[in-house]
Design a protein around this nucleic acid. Sequence first.
DNA 1: ATAATCATTGACGTTTACGTAAACGAGGAC
DNA 2: GTCCTCGTTTACGTAAACGTCAATGATTAT
Lengths: 133, 133
Amino acid sequence: MSAVYSIRDLAREFAVTTRTIRHYEEQGLLSPKREGAVRVFSNRDRVRLKLALRGKRLGFPLNEIRELFQLYDLAKDEKGQLMEFLAKLEKRRATLEQQREDIAVMLNEITFFSGQCQRLIASNANKEGQKAA
Amino acid sequence: MSAVYSIRDLAREFAVTTRTIRHYEEQGLLSPKREGAVRVFSNRDRVRLKLALRGKRLGFPLNEIRELFQLYDLAKDEKGQLMEFLAKLEKRRATLEQQREDIAVMLNEITFFSGQCQRLIASNANKEGQKAA
DNA sequence: ATAATCATTGACGTTTACGTAAACGAGGAC
DNA sequence: GTCCTCGTTTACGTAAACGTCAATGATTAT
């Protein structure tokens, strides 16, 4: 445990550019140690990067993700922050449930249209077959 | 049926600005008729706006949404387009399933952290109560 | 020792998705 | 008749999330 990673390690593992990782540090999502000028990433950084990328896939802006990270850190100590963190979590939950609903609808639509397409293609194939016959 | 809508009608209904709707027209997502210079939106436009906004909530770029609309239109006529449409649908499906998985994970995390928070708050409340007692 | 690879910072560029302001016309309300 | 409200176009502005050099330095491979 207590593994360390170079910027390239993480970039490879998560299929992002090193620029992205540096950008995330600039934005306060990651806070790697330094050996001289060189960034040294911990497991904590790795986890945060994973969380950030999951958020990104769902379209969450980096500053919201950063806020959640910050609140999570603060929440350990201060109590007011705990409530605030909780509130943000519930907002996030609401967004996610809206998204889940959106996804359900779109997947149904896709299944429907996909079926339509395949039937059309199949019937066209029949016509082609008849021409050939 | 065959209802018509002003730009403001749609803006109100979907809680977006008129600027957004004009932008979507510029980007080829909507194609309202005109009475003189004034846009007149049909049910088709209304549906497309709804679809576009659903896509937006899931972080899809406008040009992808436009492509799907275009392919859907073309697919009725040409057969090659049908296959292409089908392919895009499957790609979209894959993305959506990734997102669905992401959402499931995040909702679990939120439920976990939310529980943690509430327990901490409750125990703090106890301490406060003991102080008061 | 020289090339290849990895790292750094700095800074300007780009795309997306609109916001925002300017300047204007058409139709009702009072 | 003038003030709202709604509509239009043109066009510059902006925030986010990086991309893309450029210039430089430390390690490693051969």
